[in-house]
């Protein structure tokens, strides 16, 4: 691979997140560089999804500093994250089941629509031009993910693996600079996983998007990520290249239990 990993674009410093008395994340620091694939791994309940939610502004950590593109941010709402170029997919698919694949992916363009509600309703002025432009972008995503044959199919009728792909498509439609993927391969069979891996690598390669992903399948993580963060009980226990993490004592203990 000849890709260029750039500077740090997201820097998380000493993040702590509490829900009442429950400590979800404790004093976690790590960074994400431009164009890299950064994996977050850890056992169940380690705080991985909370970490993603902190990054895209769903949760607000009580302590710590988040620096995104060189600017420190304190309180940010999810839609602000979206306009700043962060898109995500969810662990449990969050699509509009009754809407077609095309319409679902179109919703990914919403933050980029400029025409007013009235213009859209009356199909006036910018609305038409914009719609064409957005549709073109959406079609490119459909072509990229090879889902032309289900373009008009309601999402609820699709098998799980394809729904996951559609959700990735919606995130891609937002043309994100950073993509957060929450277990993109959960519940997939081997073939679907291979497809998804290929798409993630292609997104990274061709769109140049930075990818932060949570995944349980160690084979996948070790294959496709550039660097890996390991969490356990809300604490960071490892950080580094896949091979380093694989041989880290604490990580082995967390995953396999203590050897006696």
């Amino acid at each position: 691979m000849s890709k260029k990993i750039g500077d740090v674009i997201l820097d998380l410093q000493n993040i702590s997140l509490r829900f009442g008395g429950v400590k979800a994340l404790t004093d976690i620091s790590f960074d994400v560089r431009e164009h890299e694939i950064r994996a977050i791994i850890g056992p169940n309940g380690a705080g991985k999804s909370s970490m993603l939610n902190v990054i895209n502004g769903v949760y607000h950590p009580q302590e710590g500093v988040i620096i995104f593109h060189g600017r420190e941010r304190r309180k940010m709402e999810p839609h602000q994250a979206a306009t700043q170029g962060i898109a995500r997919t969810f662990q449990n698919i969050a699509l509009f089941k009754g809407m077609s694949v095309l319409d679902n992916i179109m919703t990914g363009r919403i933050t980029r629509m400029k025409a007013s509600f009235i213009e859209h309703a009356l199909w006036l002025g910018r609305a038409k031009r914009e719609e064409l432009e957005h549709r073109k972008k959406v079609e490119e995503v459909i072509d990229f993910l090879e889902i032309q044959h289900i373009r008009k199919t309601p999402v609820g009728r699709l098998p799980y693996g394809l729904q996951k792909r559609v959700e990735l498509g919606r995130a891609l439609a937002a043309e994100p600079s950073m993509l957060l993927l929450d277990e993109p391969m959960a519940g997939m069979n081997v073939e679907e996983k291979q497809d998804m891996c290929r798409f993630i690598l292609d997104v990274n390669d061709q769109f140049g998007a930075t990818i932060v992903l949570i995944e349980h399948d160690m084979g996948v993580v070790m294959d496709i990520s550039d660097r890996v963060v390991v969490l356990d009980y809300g604490k960071k226990i490892g950080d580094g290249l896949p091979d380093d993490v694989k041989n880290n004592e604490d990580v082995i203990t967390a995953y396999l239990g203590v050897s006696h």
Partner: peptide, 8 residues
């Protein structure tokens, strides 16, 4: 020749 590309 026609070809469907990007949905058109």
């Amino acid at each position: 020749i026609r070809e469907k590309d990007l949905g058109i």
